[in-house]
Design a protein around this nucleic acid. Structure first.
Length: 470
RNA sequence: GCGCCCUUCGUCUAUCGGUUAGGACUCAAGAUUUUCAAUCUUGCAAGAGGGGUUCGACUCCCCUAGGGCGCGCCA
């Protein structure tokens, strides 16, 4: 790597699906490190596979990164737009003798591979056109351009996370640089684009580790500066197997919909494979400060939803009540497009937030537990609540309603009045609390009932209590 | 099959040759309590196996086992 060049990192997904959790973490690491060293974080869309690339997937990548709060510098680069440049480099390599034309047909190669497999040999291109001039029968026949890779010695990648990794060059075959239709392969395009974009650090998943060796061969042939490589381990499902669709949510947007906060997501993903002593809660600003490539671990990590929950719960509790309320309201609106959440609802939500947020791990739970704040009048009781509202309880509620109907209307005063009431009735507070809770919230579990009454206000609370009188 | 990588509590991890192997999540118990949480306290729980090197190994080396990734005119 050129020592004097400014650090440039990039995230280079191919737009063939949504932005998944593994990609999000790779992007996060690149972003964090770029911000840490004051370098650039670029985005490149690797859309050279015209068959599988879709505009929807491009949008999903933009949306996913945006939701994650990972902002990239400058305009995204679309790889396909650069085919001419890729072709040009391939021509240069051809001219310099670092590449050659191969006329083997796909069928021919397929046969070669199956023969190799049958003999128990390793499957790789046998170099049949490496030193062969095309004859008359090749005239006007399609060909691919292959790298004339070194056949002896070894290729060594100095990787910040994996350490020094070596391959005997006899293990690497002559890869395709240009397809027979003249389009570049990923292997060529990546190297050319990284060079042109001035990329100094290539941080990506270990599934690319083997590619690093091959890309290095192209870089060396061109005499270009070698970037610093860092291949981060993959994320596995809870069962240890590769993360796949059967593990459920893979797309980052699915986590948004499950009610996780971007900051919690960042913290969780960061700690998956990276650590700083015993630190668990590492807000993004702190992460930028502390993040180094050397501290990335080498083993694959399993995705643990329970831990994500706990981190998310932490960040929700740490948020200001107003900010969390706005977040929750926006979320609720997306969940229930038909319903109206207006100013009084927000006021109640903010007031109730101190009691609500310790009871929720996600925005989904928060909105669900806040439901009783969004109705006018008593919410429909669930099964257990309906049971608590038996005739005896309802009679008591009516009497209690009268006893409560006074000022001041705050939690301590309400509790004092209620305690006096139950004492006079010769019953325990707990006997009164559940019917009251059922009447006010429609549930048998809720924040402290006197706080609920205080948040609802005198009129609304009494209305709900009296509603049990019929 | 060939190449490369990985292996500490169930999970994420700390430990840079000498620790009662620590923290977090989960789970269990207790405290608190108007319900449910939150909070606090306590507890359960780990160096894959086998060889070396060393006064001393979770830490270094080798082998085995298990797991992962790659081996396309996909990226």
């Amino acid at each position: 790597m050129a020592e004097n060049s400014a650090p440039v990192l990039r995230f280079a997904p191919s737009p063939t699906g949504y932005l998944h959790i593994g990609g999000a973490r790779t992007a996060l690491f690149n972003w964090l490190y770029a911000r840490h060293i004051g370098g650039k974080f670029l985005l490149r869309i690797e859309d050279t596979d015209r068959e599988r690339s879709t505009p929807e997937a491009v949008a999903a990548i933009f949306n996913g990164l945006t939701w994650m709060g990972l902002d990239w510098d400058g305009e995204p680069v679309f790889q396909f737009a650069r085919v001419e440049r890729h072709r040009e480099v391939a021509q240069q390599m051809l001219a310099m003798g670092y590449a050659y034309r191969c006329y083997a047909t796909p069928q021919e190669l397929e046969q070669m591979r199956s023969e190799q497999k049958a003999k128990g040999l390793s499957v790789r291109y046998d170099g049949r056109w490496r030193d062969r001039e095309p004859g008359p029968e090749q005239r006007n026949m399609p060909y691919v351009v292959r790298l004339r890779a070194p056949q002896t010695g070894e290729t060594v990648v100095h990787d910040v996370v994996q350490g020094t990794v070596r391959w005997g060059n006899d293990q690497l075959d002559d890869m395709v640089l240009l397809r027979s239709d003249g389009t570049p392969t990923y292997m060529l395009a990546v190297v050319v684009d990284d060079f042109d974009m001035g990329v100094t650090h290539v941080i990506r998943g270990v599934d690319h580790l083997n590619n690093a060796a091959r890309q290095l061969q192209i870089i060396e042939a061109m005499g270009w500066p070698v970037p610093l490589y860092g291949h981060v381990p993959l994320i596995h499902g809870a069962d240890g197997a590769k993360l796949s669709k059967r593990h459920g949510a893979l797309a980052v947007e699915a986590y948004r919909d499950m009610g996780y906060l971007p900051e919690a997501m960042r913290n969780y993903l960061l700690r998956l494979g990276w650590s700083h002593g015993d630190d668990e809660i590492i807000p993004t600003q702190k992460a930028i400060e502390l993040f180094t490539l050397e501290a990335i671990g080498r083993s694959a990590a399993r995705f643990d939803m329970k831990k994500l929950d706990s981190i998310n719960a932490h960040y929700m509790r740490a948020m200001y009540d107003g900010a969390l309320a706005d977040e929750a309201l926006a979320f609720a609106q997306r969940l229930h497009p038909g319903r109206i959440f207006d100013t009084p609802h927000r006021a109640r939500l903010v007031a109730a937030m101190p009691f609500l947020k310790p009871r929720a791990k996600t925005l989904v739970e928060l909105v669900e537990k806040a439901d009783f704040l969004f109705t006018d009048g008593a919410p429909a009781p669930d099964k257990a609540a309906a049971q608590a509202l038996n005739p005896v309880a309802r009679g008591l509620l009516l009497k209690l309603g009268q006893a409560l109907d006074a000022d001041p209307w705050d939690a301590p005063s309400l509790e004092a009045r209620t305690r006096l009431f139950v004492e006079a009735e010769g019953m325990a507070l707990s006997d009164m609390a559940q019917p009251l809770r059922a009447a006010l919230t429609g549930r048998t579990a809720s924040p402290p009932i006197f706080d609920v009454m205080a948040v609802l206000g005198r009129e609304e609370a009494l209305t709900r209590i009296r509603a049990q009188g019929d």
